[in-house]
Design a protein around this nucleic acid. Structure first.
Length: 298
DNA sequence: CGGGACTCCTGCCAGC
DNA sequence: TGCTGGCAGGAGTCCC
């Protein structure tokens, strides 16, 4: 699930359980996810208070009162579950869990469990282990190797057609690949790249360098693309993100954006562009599925 | 350097 | 029913 709208939805769900609370205990099932946990990981977390939980691209960032920052990435299959200490079930945004009577059975892929000082348990589950956790040094959070080269947040002020023009100038990669690059728009992933290109009427196969005008100005194509990126992410965020394979873990009102996909996973279905008679096609670009309408995307 | 292939890992589903 | 192959929302690393 995790592209920008999904990660932001997770952040909003976790924030009430994390911010201002101390981590009482950390339990790890094994020594690594995608990479080994950093040295003394538990010691550096236990007893620390989480000052703020923020998001950068697809990373969740928990600032600790030690000055260090816990950096977390969901990978492809990572998810967080929140189990309140007691009382009625609480709706925490994307995730809704019963406060079970007694301990819930621990799943085979529950790799990290944070027990907070109020007894709330926060469990990170990640079957494929493409997720990661690391600690960024005090005072230089944004210099962390995984964060330092990220481009602008697509919903922030620094992201616009001029930025895309600068990124795409001279690039011979297809638009699909160029837009997937986290330096172009931090937080976009396969789904929302497909959706944004469709909304902008641009072919995923078109070479990125052909979109800017010769004088370096963005031109109408990149103006449309920048607007489409913002639009689709905003709508997805408002819908609580997209939920593809785990409907059972949501409360039904969250993660509804998949119903509004115009191309993603719609191979063979009619194009949803008003007036377009095209049929959505699936192609493979750099080993991953791209969905597009060959008729209205040029 | 840019671009593409490959890689990590497990689960699920279609097709035989 | 059971196996096999293909595919999955990410992204760092290699190689040309």
């Amino acid at each position: 699930m995790p592209e920008l709208p999904e990660v932001e939805t997770v952040r909003r769900g976790l924030a009430p359980a994390m911010e201002g609370r101390r981590i009482a205990a950390v339990r790890l099932k094994r020594g690594d996810l995608r990479w080994p946990f950093p040295p003394r990981f538990r010691d550096r977390l236990e007893g620390r208070r989480i000052e703020a939980l923020s998001r950068r691209a697809k990373y969740l960032l928990a600032d600790l009162d030690s000055g260090e920052t816990l950096v977390m990435h969901l990978g492809m299959s990572g998810r967080f579950s929140v189990f309140p200490a007691a009382g009625p079930a609480r709706n925490l945004g994307e995730f809704y869990f019963e406060a079970g009577a007694g301990e819930e059975a621990e799943g085979a892929h529950d790799h990290v469990t944070f027990t907070m000082d109020d007894g709330c348990r926060i469990v990170f589950t990640d079957p494929r282990r493409f997720g990661m956790m690391d600690l960024a040094a005090a005072g230089s959070r944004d210099a962390h190797p995984l964060l330092k080269d990220l481009g602008p947040e697509p919903l922030g002020n620094a992201f616009d057609a001029d930025h895309l023009a600068a990124m795409f100038r001279g690039r011979r990669a297809p638009l699909k690949a160029a837009l997937l690059d986290q330096k172009a728009a931090a937080g976009l992933g396969n789904i929302y790249v497909c959706e944004a290109l469709h909304r902008a009427g641009l072919s995923p196969r078109r070479l990125a360098g052909t979109t800017a005008r010769r004088d370096g100005a963005p031109g109408p194509a990149l103006e449309r693309l920048a607007a489409a990126v913002r639009e689709v992410l905003s709508e997805a965020l408002a819908a609580g993100g997209s939920t593809l394979r785990d409907h059972q873990a949501t409360d039904g009102s969250a993660g509804a954006f998949q119903q509004r996909f115009r191309v993603y996973d719609r191979e063979g279905e009619p194009c949803r562009t008003p007036g377009c008679t095209g049929v959505i096609r699936r192609i493979v670009q750099s080993g991953r599925s791209t969905f597009h309408c060959p008729r209205c995307q040029r």
